[in-house]
């Protein structure tokens, strides 16, 4: 069976815009917002969400990238991977509200690694999680605060997020 497209470009744009609004609504007080994308595609998503937030409330948010390769719990079980660059905004993350941004939430292990990585960069006031797709099958007690689309899936299925910046096309597909 061929891949089925579950989100088209307009759906992705709408989901990210909604997430941006939700992030702003949930922001209590005047704390800075730092959106940290998890490479590869989370970085592009964080930048897009941040630019929407910036249209609505200029100057309250910044975007960056947080690589988690060196914090993975399966490092010793797989061939070595090269890390991707981490980019923390100049003001750091101390006392900011950090929103982690990922393309797909699945086992939760990537987010576990990201939480460890964050602690090594500073002490944020709070950490939230935004994902474009939540496909279920968590292996750790982790949930997302902002979800673009809940996508019930079987573990045997393959969910792929493709973004213009990385892949040249814009879609979320599921294939058996």
């Amino acid at each position: 069976m061929a891949a089925r497209t579950v989100l088209h470009d307009a759906d992705i744009a709408r989901a990210l815009r909604r997430i941006a609004h939700e992030i702003l609504e949930s922001r209590r007080g005047d704390g800075r917002l730092v959106l940290l994308g998890i490479p590869t595609r989370g970085v592009a998503l964080a930048e897009r969400i941040q630019s929407v937030i910036d249209e609505i409330e200029p100057g309250v948010s910044e975007a960056g990238a947080l690589d988690i390769t060196l914090y993975r719990d399966d490092l010793a079980r797989t061939p070595t991977r090269a890390p991707a660059p981490t980019r923390i905004p100049a003001g750091g993350i101390d006392d900011a509200v950090v929103v982690l941004v990922a393309d797909v939430l699945y086992s939760g292990r990537t987010i576990r690694a990201a939480l460890d990585a964050i602690v090594d960069h500073g002490r944020p006031r709070a950490v939230r999680l935004a994902v474009l797709v939540d496909r279920g099958h968590r292996e750790l007690p982790i949930r997302a605060d902002f979800v673009g689309k809940n996508l019930p899936s079987a573990t045997s299925e393959r969910v792929s997020v493709r973004l213009t910046e990385v892949d040249g096309v814009e879609e979320v597909t599921i294939e058996p």
Binding site: L70, Y71, P85, T86, V119, H121
Partner: peptide, 27 residues
């Protein structure tokens, strides 16, 4: 070049709050 690029990633950790990385724990 790949090795030099990974060294760039390592250099980035120099100005973090915690500089130690967990990558070689128990090795």
């Amino acid at each position: 070049i790949r090795l030099l690029d990974v060294a760039e990633d390592m250099a980035q950790t120099a100005d973090r709050a915690v500089r130690t990385l967990p990558a070689l724990r128990d090795k």
